[in-house]
Design a protein around this nucleic acid. Structure first.
Lengths: 233, 233
DNA sequence: GAGTGGTCTAGACCACCAG
DNA sequence: TGGTGGTCTAGACCACTCC
């Protein structure tokens, strides 16, 4: 008459994590086999597996076939960020969103863009610069290059009305993406568009996407001063 | 004699993703029930579920009980970063790692630190400032506060030898972490320690950890100019 | 070679929530 | 309240990799 309800995989995960936190399983230690843990806790091996999958993804343990499961000695901090469409981001802050097209023209891709795409030869691409605003204040200044060979449809879009950002997201799924963050001093142009002083420290989100091996777009999104990226959870 | 080998969940995932990329399932569309997809592709429902779990985590689809599975209309870009111990990070770049303790003292936590921890009253905490070097050049300047109530052991550590970073990671697992990135202009002190000019744009990684509800540590890690954070994959 | 995690299946029941 | 995703089980086989 124990009346114990069945264990869920989150229960198992929490139990294992508690043991790691309390150093019952210390860093570097080998954990029992999934099957033994299952027997001990009274559940199916699959359930332990599901729990371990989670702990492994978080970076708390490391699993290897035959090698078993070990508590990581150098637990990395793993942080996940959602980078939404700018409009959505602004609206979710409860602010009014606006968008201004600054310029767009076909140009030869400069070296920096070729590097980001990993291509050797320059190509004619659509170069778009635009400003996103929140409550009438500059929010993000974006400098974007679009490969019109993989994305000819973009040429028919009225970029004064719809941002390239949104059109691409809705019409051009990507299969690979590279994301990086860094800091940059505002120079004349970004300072002017973001209404800040030359030299201000600005956070930059650089994103490049491909479909298969073909470049789609690369964008340098420069955020206004004070912008923070916060990890999920 | 089809001789088809059994479908793995990655096969299923790739098939569904291909359909989304080719707009067989367009943004906003409702996908068939897991069971129907399983029947169509010839596998167990569990396998489809595993595939969907992955697509859902990537942010490609959205799943709801009873509501079914939908292709997301505003696909977010989801990026994951590993933030390792600085020593490990430097060594993996193939550089020589060094560490210098700059100062450590018990002090009342300032307002900014109280905010990060979400506490109302100031407390005596250990304030540690240190520099991490790669190949004898400044790499990261860290300004850290440690709550000695949750972590008394830190007081016995010789911080000249072992960085607080490493000791904490090895001896004090956390149950919750907050991570954020932003840009900052170098002021007198960080400029001096990082051997750069006042005003340089620097990337800051701010990390705060708790065990249960108790604060452990909060650190502002200021990276030298040129530092980039790159997403996994 | 053999031990361990990874996956697939088939079936059952549960939990949430849109209609 | 019924349909759909979420999970658990038990058993089987596979695949990697350490010994």
């Amino acid at each position: 008459m124990t009346g114990r309800t069945r264990l869920s995989w989150t229960d198992v995960r929490d139990e294992i994590r508690a043991r790691i936190l309390s150093r019952t399983y210390a860093p570097g230690d080998k954990l029992p086999r999934d099957e033994d843990i299952a027997t001990e806790l009274g559940c199916a091996r699959t359930t332990v597996h599901r729990a371990m999958q989670d702990l492994s993804q978080i970076g708390l343990v490391e699993r290897k076939r035959k090698g078993g499961t070990h508590v990581r000695t150098d637990p990395v901090t793993r942080a996940t960020f959602d980078i939404p469409i700018t409009r959505r981001e602004v609206e979710q802050r409860g602010s009014k969103y606006d968008y201004q097209l600054i310029s767009h023209a076909m140009e030869d891709s400069p070296m920096s863009v070729m590097t980001r795409f990993g291509i050797q030869q320059p190509a004619q691409m659509l170069h778009v610069r635009a400003l996103h605003l929140a409550d009438n204040r500059p929010y993000i200044f974006e400098d974007r290059w679009i490969d019109t060979r993989s994305t000819p449809g973009i040429l028919d879009v009225d970029l004064k009305v719809e941002s390239a950002n949104e059109w691409l997201v809705r019409n051009k799924p990507y299969s690979r993406v590279d994301v990086r963050f860094y800091a940059m001093n505002a120079e004349g142009e970004s300072a002017r568009h973001l209404s800040t002083n030359v030299g201000s420290a600005l956070l930059v989100i650089e994103r490049t996407t491909w479909i298969g091996r073909d470049p789609i777009t690369t964008v340098q999104a420069v955020a206004a001063p004070g912008y923070q990226l916060t990890a999920l959870n």
